[in-house]
């Protein structure tokens, strides 16, 4: 890895050691708090897609390294970073960009329109120059600014005039708001008339960052399993000495290392969409599998939040639902593999 990326990786690791590792349960279960978000911003993690004074410029490799390493310790913090940077990449209002990049305000983008069918996601329309209605499944619903799509297809920035509605169940990422929003706002801006297309592009661009998060989660949780299996004994032997546990974890770590190499190849050149989706699909699946194995290795202790393993089990599943659609993504990917529409009868 080039020196600048190594420095960046070490910066994130130091940040985790200083501010996250001893406090991760609170940061991941309760609200992160403005002070912590400001610290994330001060490190530059929230402005990987936009830097105040320098403008927009995403280094996908740097962005992915940040997400991967934050996810090793605290997936919810990595998600917060992903959402904030997604917001900054799509909004063009200078004052808002600066406030969010500095951690003074927060912003999010809703992707739920791409994940559920029409009419299943609330109703949001412009009536008499006001955006009115309700939008379901807003990840980052506690944000100050929200980018979302209307039923008529426009992508809009809501600056104010919305409030949190029904709070959804939160399998994972519990310190990131997840609720519907109720909107009655005249303080909005239409970003793009063809919002679905723009949102789809952003969603596709997130394949590598989401894969980076998944790989970080796999690395974080598998390290916990490795550490535990070396010291925990059962039936007079270390857990690592039992074939079922050792072989399964080793096999999954082998898969992880292969994916990491593939990941670094992808981010070191121009990102190819098909390869990015290959990576996302496989990295998400691995994160779920390796979290399950790691929890199993920890036994009853893995089932308790104190050991910091069960969160990966929840978060890996939540991530695979929030940023991947089993059917839609696979139809798209199959189309690229077959070089024609595939997965449809």
């Amino acid at each position: 890895m080039e020196e600048e990326y190594e420095i960046l990786e070490n910066t994130v690791k130091d940040f985790n050691t200083k501010y996250v590792d001893n406090n991760s349960m609170k940061l991941e279960n309760d609200e992160m708090g403005k002070e912590f978000v400001k610290m994330l911003a001060d490190q530059g993690f929230l402005s990987m897609t936009y830097q105040p004074g320098a403008g927009k410029n995403t280094d996908i490799k740097a962005f992915s390294i940040v997400l991967e390493n934050l996810a090793k310790s605290a997936p919810a913090i990595s998600l917060k970073t992903l959402l904030t940077n997604s917001f900054l990449s799509i909004v063009n209002e200078q004052s808002i960009l600066d406030e969010v990049a500095k951690g003074e305000k927060s912003g999010t983008v809703t992707f739920s329109d791409l994940l559920v069918g029409k009419g299943q996601n609330g109703k949001l329309l412009i009536e008499n120059n006001r955006v009115k209605g309700e939008k379901q499944f807003v990840l980052g619903s506690d944000s100050d600014f929200i980018v979302t799509t209307l039923d008529t297809g426009e992508l809009v920035l809501l600056r104010s005039g919305f409030k949190v509605g029904k709070k959804h169940k939160r399998l994972g990422f519990r310190s990131v708001g997840f609720a519907s929003i109720v909107v009655d706002s005249d303080d909005f801006k239409v970003i793009d008339k063809d919002g679905t297309r723009m949102l789809q592009k952003l969603y596709e661009d997130l394949s590598v960052p989401v894969a980076a998060m998944s790989l970080g989660m796999s690395e974080g949780v598998s390290q916990k399993a490795l550490d535990y299996a070396k010291v925990r004994t059962a039936f007079g032997h270390y857990l690592k000495d039992f074939q079922p546990l050792a072989f399964e974890l080793t096999s999954q770590i082998a898969e992880m290392e292969i994916l990491k190499k593939y990941f670094h190849d992808i981010v070191s050149s121009t990102v190819n969409q098909k390869e990015a989706m290959f990576l996302k699909v496989k990295a998400l699946a691995l994160a779920k599998d390796i979290s399950k194995t790691s929890l199993q290795i920890h036994g009853g202790y893995g089932y308790l939040e104190d050991f910091g393993v069960e969160k990966f089990y929840r978060d890996s599943m939540a991530l695979s639902v929030l940023f991947h659609h089993e059917e839609k993504d696979m139809e798209k990917l199959s189309g690229m593999v077959f070089e024609s529409r595939a997965g449809f009868v």
Binding site: S112, L115, V116, Q120, Q136, F137, H168, K169, L171, K292, L295, Y303, Y313, R314, M317, A318, S320, V321, L322, H325, E326, E327
Partner: peptide, 21 residues
């Protein structure tokens, strides 16, 4: 959960998913 997408994530299925393990 994988097939029900956001509908599964926000329904009581998420509790079943946690309970099952």
């Amino acid at each position: 959960m994988e097939l029900m997408s956001l509908h599964g994530l926000t329904s009581d299925l998420e509790r079943f998913f946690r309970d099952a393990k």
